[in-house]
C-alpha cells in the first residue's frame, strides 16, 4: 500500500459520496447518467465476487462493501426514489455498444480462463468505458451542473492516482498487472478533455457548458 493507492481510493470514495449527497440534497438526479451508474454497479459486482471466497485485508473488505453499497444506493435513487427527475431522454447511449466488445474481450484476453477471473477481467474492461454514457450525456445537453463536474473530477483523479500507484509498484515491487494498467491508461485518457474544461472553466467559477 502506497500513498498514491490510498489517495486514489479516497478520491474514488469521495466521488461516489459527492454524487450521492448531490442527489439526496437536491432530491434530483437531473444531468446524471443512470446508465453509467448501472455500469459501475455491474463493475463492482463482477469484480468483488472474491469477497465471498478470498480474504485480503480488513481495509480491502470494508472498501469493497462500501463501494458496492454506494453503487447500488445511487442506482436505486436514480431509478427508484427520484426517477421522476431522471432525464432518460438524454441518457441515450447504447449500452450494447460497450457491453458486447467488453464481454468479447474479457473472454479473449484474461489471466486464466476461469469464471471468477473472466468476471474480474470483464469488470476491469467495463470500468474503463463505464463513464462514456455520462460524458455522452454532457456533450448532448452541452452542460453540467458544477457539483456533477466535481464528481467527475474526483473519479478522474482516482484513475490518475492509480496510474501513479502502478508506476510506484513497478519500481518498488517489480509488480505490474498488464490488463489493469492498459485499461487504466485508456480510462484516464477519456477524462483528459474533461480535466481541461474543469481547470479552465469550473475552477474559475464558471459553469461547465460546451459551445
Amino acid at each position: 500500500m502506497n500513498v498514491f493507492r490510498i489517495l486514489g481510493d479516497v478520491s474514488h470514495l469521495l466521488a461516489m459520496v459527492i454524487l450521492l449527497v448531490k442527489i439526496w440534497r437536491s432530491k434530483s438526479c437531473a444531468g446524471i447518467s443512470g446508465k453509467s451508474q448501472i455500469l459501475f454497479a455491474l463493475v463492482f459486482t463482477s469484480r468483488y465476487l472474491d469477497l465471498l471466497t478470498n480474504f485480503i485485508s480488513i481495509y480491502n473488505t470494508v472498501m469493497k462493501v462500501v463501494f458496492l453499497l454506494c453503487a447500488y444506493v445511487t442506482v436505486y435513487l436514480i431509478y427508484g426514489k427520484f426517477r421522476k427527475t431522471f432525464d432518460s431522454e438524454n441518457d441515450s447511449f447504447r449500452l450494447e455498444f460497450l457491453l458486447v466488445p467488453v464481454i468479447g474481450l474479457s473472454f479473449l484476453e484474461n489471466y486464466s480462463f476461469t469464471p471468477t477471473e473472466i468476471l474480474w477481467t470483464f469488470s476491469i474492461y467495463l470500468e474503463s468505458v463505464a463513464i462514456l454514457p455520462q460524458l455522452f450525456m454532457i456533450s448532448k445537453t452541452g452542460e453540467a451542473e458544477t457539483i456533477t463536474t466535481h464528481y467527475l473530477f474526483f473519479l478522474g483523479l482516482y484513475r490518475a492516482l492509480y496510474l501513479a500507484n502502478w508506476i510506484w509498484r513497478y519500481h518498488t515491487e517489480n509488480f505490474y498487472d498488464q490488463i489493469a494498467v492498459v485499461s487504466g491508461v485508456v480510462q484516464t485518457i477519456f477524462y483528459c478533455d474533461f480535466f481541461y474544461l474543469y481547470i479552465t472553466k469550473v475552477l474559475k467559477g464558471k459553469k461547465l457548458s460546451l459551445p
Binding site: T53, N54, N60, Y111, S112, T114, E117, Y176, D177, Q178
Partner: peptide, 10 residues
C-alpha cells in the same frame, strides 16, 4: 502478474 483471485487493488 498476480494470478487467480489475488487482486488486492480496488
Amino acid at each position: 502478474h498476480k494470478n487467480g483471485s489475488e487482486h488486492d487493488e480496488l
